Simulated assay, not measured.
Amino acid sequence: MSDAVRLSGVRKVYGKGSGAVAALAGVSAGFERGTFTAVMGPSGSGKSTFLHCAAGLDKPTSGSVELAGVELTGLGENQLTRLRRDKIGFVFQAFNLLPALTVAQNIALPLRLAGRTPDRAAMSEVVHRVGLENRLGHRPAQLSGGQQQRVAIARALVTRPAVIFADEPTGALDTRTAREVLTLLRQAVTASSQTIVMVTHDPVAASFADRVIFLADGTLVGELHSPTPEAVADRMTHLGAWAAA
């Protein structure tokens, strides 16, 4: 299997001189197509910077990022914008839906922005998968938090992206709703070979992934395959001690 995303020796330094801080210190990692990876680490470990660099939202200080066969570091801003629109789906903790648009309009928005007419069959499939058939005419304020996150997932899936980046997608949800949302993401990987990279602090959320990679002080310090919540929690406990040492 080839990688949907690959980071090679990625460093990201903020500030200059004595005030410089290395958020990432030469990280290399690959994410195979059709896999679900969770990214974890203590607060300040570089998780968000890792996600931003992998998704082309932030440029590395050095190193390279390849996404869907395209090297990102040499692209201009317009090229990056097009690539993010066509090849990447995003799911955030805050849902990021447009309040004036209906559920159907929010889901179709990435296609509209790309100048593409939404394919009715593809829309129907995505809507069915997230269980929103009876909510298409509603606006976000009329939905629960879980329903809003389902809209965000449908919006991420509808373009059939090379990869979906999820940043704490269950952070604003109760336990039962979080489990439903994670099951949806898991099904997207299993049934449709979607590639998902998810930053999370929750060992239960991480257990839905195929593997977990751990960051500490901007460095990749290990990974866990077929994770259980207990194994992830145990590794995180030791990571905290490692990072504080």
Rank of each mutant, 00 (worst) to 15 (best):
Q194C: 09
E180R: 01
E223K: 07
T195V: 11
A178P: 06
S192V: 00
F208V: 03
D174S: 07
Q148W: 00
L143I: 13
A188I: 01
I196E: 03
G131L: 09
V163K: 01
R186Y: 02
I164G: 07
I213L: 15
H128N: 13
D202W: 10
P227Y: 09
A162P: 10
L136R: 01
R176E: 15
P118N: 08
V158Y: 02
Q148P: 06
E180Q: 13
D210H: 13
G146H: 04
G137L: 11
E133L: 14
D210R: 00
N134L: 12
A121V: 13
G171Y: 03
Q148G: 08
V158M: 04
A206M: 06
P140E: 08
F214A: 09
A141C: 07
R150L: 07
A178G: 15
T200K: 03
H201Q: 10
A162M: 04
V158F: 02
G131Q: 06
Q148S: 06
A209G: 11
T175K: 12
V126K: 04
R186Q: 14
R135D: 11
L224V: 11
R155P: 13
L224G: 12
L132E: 04
D210K: 00
T177M: 02
R129T: 12
V163M: 03
Q187A: 12
A121P: 02
D119Y: 08
T183P: 00
Q149H: 05
D119E: 15
A172G: 06
E125A: 15
V221W: 02
R150V: 09
Q147G: 06
R150K: 11
L173H: 07
R129P: 01
H138V: 12
L143C: 11
V204D: 04
I196M: 03
V221E: 14
D217S: 14
G222Y: 12
S226I: 01
A178H: 02
A166H: 06
A166N: 05
V126A: 14
R179L: 02
A216F: 04
V197C: 03
H128Y: 01
A162N: 09
R186C: 06
R129V: 04
A206W: 05
A154P: 09
A122N: 04
V151Y: 00
L224P: 11
P161G: 11
D217F: 00
Q147S: 07
A178M: 01
Q149D: 09
Q187N: 09
G146Y: 05
G146R: 00
D217P: 05
M123A: 14
P203Q: 01
Q149V: 11
V127H: 06
P161V: 07
